[in-house]
Write a protein that binds this DNA or RNA. Structure first.
Lengths: 252, 252
DNA sequence: CGGTGTGTTGAACAGCTTCAATTCATGTGG
DNA sequence: CCACATGAATTGAAGCTGTTCAACACACCG
């Protein structure tokens, strides 16, 4: 477990006047297509680079009026809903290239907090301007539809309420795959968040997370050393997780 | 509990060449605004009325290629995800005016089954055509964004995993409010679905649903007679449900 | 060095599930 | 028309999974 890459504290690629960030959701959309050059440059002009946000600081808060959506450029961000009885539910952990804030469109207010887990940099997209632009950039509109649709699915996945082991297996594998898609090792990685966050994401007590990790460790399917994780038997984990897994990225 | 309205077996309003159905999601959008008349008539032309679907028959199935979204015109439709170990999870019950199929945009396949609970009639919107039209009808685009965003939220609500009583209270109250928004009584109504469906929606065993209903009944907060429900103390139910409730429709 | 927050482990408890039996309504075939 | 089968709903009893409460190890930091 020595070859673990430590995440760079600053974004590797900020983009410039001619290009989007390498992680940008809209980068791939615009690169290959014959799009309206003027509109494209407007889209580019619309992007606002913000950060750094230190671990624990808010990108937006529950109840704030909705003005913009955000794409994670570097670091990790969690979206946190206030649950009943003082509990909090973490809807997701968002890696570079992923977009947050889309759930706020409906009520025009953010329904959750967005909090940096790591030191995080983001891109800000003023939504009204973006929505206007999409009428001239159908590919961007399609991408927005797709992003919104994706979030419906991801919210639904955990709702099936499987056993603790399955949830944790699905969580680890999902994280592994998303990291792999970003050029990191799929086998060995470091959990960016504390146990309590994992617990709140999977609807478990932190103690249960500990115990399940230990169980998986004792079975020889993973190795756990603090936040260092090594997946020894991803096949077994996948079997455990069952239909719960986010499909291994077909598109984008 | 005698004044209960029985739901009409056929849609009350099919719309015509000049008007959308009274329940239509896009009706309100187009009615009041100064929109492109030609584009509007195209949108109108795009709508395809389908049905009836008898209880238990599929509107679409998991894995089918995504071609269109659907709006419920009359009746009730459930969206069912295949859960782990043969269990099934019901993401939602959809009343007239609500849209289903949006989660399929992302992977271009339906991630769930849509099954009629009641006899149901729907409107079908070819999605590609619709997406093209929205570039000329910004209000419709905005409405689509809003619908998608709404579904993210609704999927997240139950994820907070509260106690069984809270879930059931939230479910009953949510249903009551949605029915009220459609002109039915908020106090007295009939559950369109069987207990097992409620159980699969709330991640409970059918037996637990029975027991909780009985408990609420014995507390004097509701009256239950088979599928007939009367809410005697909606205030207490709301207190129980806590932050879990869908906000009482502000917009639309 | 004590303080704080994270993580682990143990033991008792609670809530929900599971299994099983019963009632009731509906529909089918003899 | 009745006998029987089927499925929904309810209720009871037992069992299990995860929670809660509590104690402790460990690292980091003033």
């Amino acid at each position: 477990m020595a070859e673990l890459r430590s995440k760079p504290p600053a974004p590797a690629d900020d983009g410039d006047a001619a290009n989007f960030c390498s992680t940008c959701v809209f980068g791939t959309v615009c690169a290959a297509h014959d799009v309206d050059k003027i509109a494209l440059s407007e889209l580019h002009f619309l992007v606002e680079h913000i950060g750094p946000f230190r671990a624990g600081s808010h990108i937006f808060r529950t109840g704030e009026p909705f003005k913009a959506i955000y794409a994670v450029r570097s670091g990790v961000v969690k979206t946190v809903y206030a649950g009943s009885a003082g509990r909090e539910y973490i809807a997701g952990f968002h890696l570079p290239g992923e977009v947050i804030g889309l759930a706020a469109i409906h009520e025009q207010r953010f329904p959750c907090d967005a909090i940096a887990v790591d030191t995080a940099y983001l891109c800000r997209f003023e939504f009204r301007t973006l929505a206007t632009l999409t009428t001239r950039l159908p590919q961007v509109q399609a991408e927005l539809f797709r992003l919104l649709s994706k979030d419906i699915g991801s919210a639904t996945v955990l709702a099936g309420e499987p056993a603790a082991d399955e949830r944790l297996a699905a969580f680890l594998l999902g994280l592994s795959r998303r990291l792999a898609a970003r050029g990191f090792s799929a086998r060995v990685f470091r959990l960016p968040m504390v146990r309590r966050d994992i617990a709140n994401h999977l609807n478990l007590a932190p103690e249960t997370v500990s115990r399940v990790l230990r169980r998986l460790h004792d079975q020889g399917w993973i190795r756990v050393l603090d936040r260092q994780i090594e997946l020894l038997r991803p096949d077994e984990l996948a079997r455990l997780a069952g239909a719960l897994l986010p499909v291994p990225q077909v598109r984008r």
